[in-house]
Nucleic acid binder design. Structure first.
Length: 443
DNA sequence: TCTGGGGTCCTAGGACCC
DNA sequence: TCTGGGGTCCTAGGACCC
């Protein structure tokens, strides 16, 4: 397939902009949550192990042994219970405080190895290795892997290439095909094509379920097929992100490093219930608790909220009940971080959407339009009570930090906590009293 | 019986304005 | 009966990621 003149011109232009040669490493912790649990419990080192999502819902991390016996990623726990029993699989409820802690340690080590690092998720980071000489890359990543293992106890895989998307491909190959080596460096164009011809379309970073179906219907089955597709077709049938992925497969870097200091734009706290909830009071207690958690999170980052969404829903999987999902957004007159004001707003939203009947399975609170406190200019109609509110919030946060979560709270959260999730397999390793994800800026 | 949570970005379409 | 065109902004919903 020869590129048209217009496409050729576009590619030449991008190539020109990209003339500086890049080397990007993707460092990915192997079976991260399982590895964390193993750190504190070496007894399970060679056994099949899985970690479950909140509420013990789905499998979200598997050891190699668990993968081998056919336990799939994201599978509901109740569907694999038989396998678990048959093979004596070790099961753990997720402990995000622990994983966040270990993640910070790994990232800390990585920061010593590159001037430019992007923490992409709790267990992954991109590193700029452009300053390392080509012939030294291999020994560099080998050393990096062994140091991370030595200092943190976490095994990692490393993929290196010239674009982020290709470094993801390299990382996949490090994990899949070269068991025991765990690092993979993609060097030249010819080599890239050989790997891409065998690389399934659905495994490419940025190609999800929907788009991979579209590609397959149009005879694009491998990463190489996608690389050779025409820009016009991609642009017409997907969007700019689709085109960026294709460019990156062509070894043209389009996705830059992102700064981890970018402030969060939205903040969502939601949980499934341990058992179905029918009454307004329990629903309210959960919504208030989520609201307080979210408010605390944004105060840590010195942010204020512009609008608040509350949502409630029953289970989308239950065939005997019609799916019910409702949300209500309220814009605040003045952006705030005041727990009491936010709680009142959330309760008002909930009152408007609550309907008796559905067996509620989940509720949540989303704060939209976050901005930094310093940036925010006081509104014309501000009430003048901000200072009081600020002092109160500071006092609450300090007390809760010192004496444990929910020491001081709002009476509306209730004391029964009937809605709280199941955690039947907790390892009970407590590194902190906070049960939400760490505050490194992850996506 | 039992199916996670927290993000970002993009697009289409509506409202509104001149 | 005939009923513009172009721009901006906002929002809901979809797709993707780990």
């Amino acid at each position: 397939m020869r590129p048209r003149f217009g496409e050729w011109l576009l590619m030449s232009y991008i190539k020109l902009k990209n003339k500086s040669y890049k080397k990007i490493a993707l460092v990915d912790c192997n079976s991260f949550y399982v590895s964390c649990e193993r750190l504190f419990n070496p007894r399970i080192n060679n056994l099949p192990v899985v970690v479950l999502s909140n509420n013990d819902g789905c499998v979200i991390s598997r050891s190699i042994e668990a993968k081998k016996i056919g336990i799939k990623m994201g599978e509901p726990y109740f569907k694999v219970k038989q396998l678990v029993k048959k093979y004596n699989v070790q099961v753990y409820s997720s402990n995000y405080a622990l994983y966040g802690d270990i993640s910070r340690r790994v990232m800390h080590v990585l920061k010593n190895f590159s001037p430019k690092i992007e923490m992409y998720s709790i267990d992954e980071a991109f590193l700029d290795l452009s300053l390392i000489k080509n012939e030294e890359v291999k020994s560099f990543v080998s050393e990096l892997r062994s140091i991370i293992l030595k200092w943190t106890g976490i095994p990692v895989s490393i993929g290196v290439a010239q674009t982020k998307t290709l470094s993801k491909v390299a990382n996949h190959l490090a994990k899949k095909e070269k068991i025991g080596i765990k690092n993979f460096i993609i060097n030249n164009e010819e080599e890239i094509d050989n790997f891409l011809k065998k690389f399934p379309i659905e495994d490419i970073w940025g190609v999800g379920r929907k788009i991979s179906k579209l590609y397959k219907n149009n005879n694009i089955h491998t990463a190489h097929d996608l690389k050779m597709a025409s820009n016009t077709w991609i642009k017409k049938n997907t969007n700019v992100l689709g085109l960026k992925t294709v460019m990156e497969l062509r070894n043209i870097s389009c996705i830059d490093f992102e700064s981890n200091s970018n402030p969060r734009k939205n903040c969502c706290v939601s949980r499934s219930f341990g058992k179905k909830v029918l009454d307004y009071e329990t629903l309210k207690e959960s919504v208030v608790a989520h609201c307080l958690n979210a408010a605390e999170k944004i105060r840590v980052d010195r942010q204020v909220v512009k609008s608040v969404v509350v949502f409630i829903r029953n289970s989308p999987f239950n065939k005997n009940e019609r799916f019910f999902s409702k949300s209500k957004k309220i814009d605040l007159p003045i952006p705030t971080d005041d727990s009491i004001l936010l709680t009142k707003t959330c309760i008002q939203s909930l009152k408007e959407i609550f309907l008796k009947g559905p067996r509620y399975q989940k509720a949540g609170v989303i704060f939209l339009g976050l901005s930094t406190k310093e940036k925010y200019d006081k509104g014309l109609f501000s009430s003048g009570t901000e200072e009081k509110s600020q002092n109160l919030m500071k006092a609450i946060d300090k007390t809760n930090f010192r004496f444990g979560r929910r020491m001081i709270t709002v009476a509306d959260t209730g004391f029964c906590n009937n809605w709280r999730m199941r955690k039947g397999h907790s390892s009970k390793i407590d590194t902190s009293s906070y049960d939400f994800l760490p505050t490194i800026n992850i996506r």
